[in-house]
Deep mutational scan, measured.
Amino acid sequence: TGIVNVSSSLNVRSSASTSSKVIGSLSGNTKVTIVGEEGAFYKIEYKGSHGYVAAEYI
């Protein structure tokens, strides 16, 4: 489990890349469940599926 540490919002992406499609966003202080790690990204549970967020902001 981690907490989103941004002042505005954090993009949730379809894969572990900044060039991948943005599938949603999370606001600051949102609690997320981390299920894996790929490079600089965490794989998280997101809306019944999975998404990827930049690990530096969690």
Score class of each variant (00 low, 15 high):
1 T>V: 13
1 T>M: 12
1 T>L: 11
1 T>H: 13
1 T>C: 15
1 T>F: 15
2 G>C: 12
2 G>V: 08
2 G>W: 10
2 G>M: 08
2 G>R: 08
3 I>H: 08
3 I>E: 05
3 I>V: 12
3 I>G: 04
3 I>Y: 15
3 I>Q: 07
4 V>K: 04
4 V>E: 03
4 V>H: 03
4 V>Q: 04
4 V>C: 07
5 N>K: 12
5 N>C: 15
6 V>C: 15
6 V>I: 13
6 V>W: 07
6 V>S: 13
6 V>Q: 07
6 V>K: 12
6 V>R: 10
6 V>M: 08
7 S>W: 09
7 S>F: 09
7 S>P: 10
7 S>I: 11
8 S>M: 12
8 S>R: 13
8 S>G: 15
8 S>Q: 11
8 S>C: 15
9 S>M: 12
9 S>L: 11
9 S>N: 10
10 L>G: 03
10 L>C: 15
10 L>P: 07
10 L>R: 03
10 L>Y: 03
10 L>I: 15
10 L>A: 10
10 L>K: 02
11 N>C: 15
11 N>K: 14
11 N>L: 15
12 V>L: 03
12 V>C: 04
12 V>K: 01
12 V>N: 00
13 R>S: 06
14 S>Y: 11
14 S>D: 11
14 S>T: 08
15 S>C: 12
15 S>L: 09
15 S>K: 11
16 A>W: 04
16 A>S: 07
16 A>M: 04
16 A>T: 06
17 S>F: 06
17 S>P: 01
17 S>W: 05
18 T>Y: 15
18 T>W: 15
18 T>E: 13
19 S>D: 13
19 S>H: 12
19 S>M: 12
19 S>N: 13
20 S>T: 06
20 S>L: 03
20 S>H: 04
20 S>C: 05
20 S>Q: 02
20 S>R: 05
20 S>N: 03
20 S>I: 02
21 K>C: 11
21 K>S: 11
21 K>E: 12
21 K>P: 14
22 V>P: 04
22 V>S: 06
23 I>R: 02
23 I>Y: 02
23 I>W: 03
24 G>N: 01
25 S>G: 06
25 S>R: 14
25 S>M: 14
25 S>D: 06
26 L>K: 00
26 L>M: 05
26 L>F: 04
27 S>M: 13
27 S>L: 14
27 S>Y: 10
27 S>R: 14
27 S>N: 11
28 G>A: 14
29 N>C: 15
29 N>P: 06
29 N>F: 14
29 N>I: 06
29 N>H: 12
29 N>W: 15
29 N>A: 09
30 T>R: 06
30 T>D: 10
30 T>P: 03
30 T>Q: 11
30 T>G: 05
30 T>Y: 07
31 K>D: 05
31 K>R: 14
31 K>S: 09
32 V>K: 00
32 V>C: 04
32 V>R: 00
33 T>D: 05
33 T>F: 10
33 T>K: 12
33 T>S: 08
33 T>C: 14
33 T>Y: 11
33 T>H: 09
34 I>L: 05
34 I>P: 01
35 V>T: 07
35 V>S: 04
35 V>R: 04
35 V>H: 04
35 V>A: 05
36 G>P: 01
36 G>L: 05
36 G>N: 06
36 G>F: 04
36 G>D: 07
37 E>H: 14
38 E>Q: 08
39 G>E: 05
40 A>K: 11
40 A>S: 10
40 A>R: 10
40 A>L: 11
40 A>E: 12
41 F>A: 02
41 F>C: 04
42 Y>W: 05
42 Y>T: 03
42 Y>F: 09
42 Y>I: 07
42 Y>N: 01
43 K>I: 13
43 K>Y: 06
43 K>M: 09
44 I>Q: 00
44 I>K: 00
45 E>S: 07
45 E>M: 12
45 E>D: 07
46 Y>I: 03
46 Y>D: 00
46 Y>V: 02
46 Y>M: 02
46 Y>E: 01
47 K>Q: 12
47 K>D: 10
47 K>W: 07
47 K>N: 13
47 K>I: 06
47 K>H: 09
48 G>W: 06
48 G>M: 06
49 S>P: 01
50 H>R: 04
50 H>A: 07
50 H>N: 05
51 G>K: 02
51 G>S: 02
51 G>F: 04
51 G>R: 02
52 Y>E: 00
52 Y>K: 00
52 Y>Q: 00
53 V>M: 02
53 V>N: 01
54 A>C: 15
54 A>Y: 13
54 A>E: 15
54 A>N: 09
54 A>T: 07
54 A>I: 14
55 A>K: 15
55 A>Y: 06
55 A>R: 15
55 A>S: 13
55 A>F: 07
56 E>H: 10
56 E>W: 08
56 E>N: 08
57 Y>W: 09
57 Y>D: 07
57 Y>V: 04
57 Y>N: 07
57 Y>T: 04
58 I>W: 04
58 I>K: 02
58 I>N: 02
58 I>T: 02
